[in-house]
Amino acid sequence: MSRTYLGEFEELVLLAVAVLELQSAGAYGVSIADELKLRTQRTTSVTGVHVVLYRLEEKGLVGSELGGASQVRGGRRKRLFTLTAAGQQVLREMRQLRLGFWEALPTPFFS
């Protein structure tokens, strides 16, 4: 199986990047942590999110650039992440995989 292996948290972070990169704020540490907290109801540490992002970047699933310094950040730039084609491909494969499982389940399961 040549597919890139992703952990659950990695997958969530990757999805968050996909969602947030389209918005004005962009996808970066704090916005992703907030998005995850909002959706999963669990507190995620920014540091942890960063580590996952770097890993995803090393796997080539996201790309990044620096930008958007502001006063509240003490004049520091943020690293804005975007989904790469490979990332999109992985997300699509993930979805397919899960859908395949769901379709294999008998219908009464959903009622």
């Binding site: 704090v30 920014v46 943020k78």
Partner: peptide
């Protein structure tokens, strides 16, 4: 740079939401 920036931003956010004490606590934890 990016990590420190993110943490400081979050810190400012938390001061507003949860008060300075908890914000500091969270910052230390992070």
């Amino acid at each position: 740079e990016e990590l420190q920036g993110d943490l400081q931003e979050q810190y400012a956010q938390r001061i507003d939401q949860n008060g300075p004490l908890r914000a500091r606590w969270w910052y230390v934890l992070e």
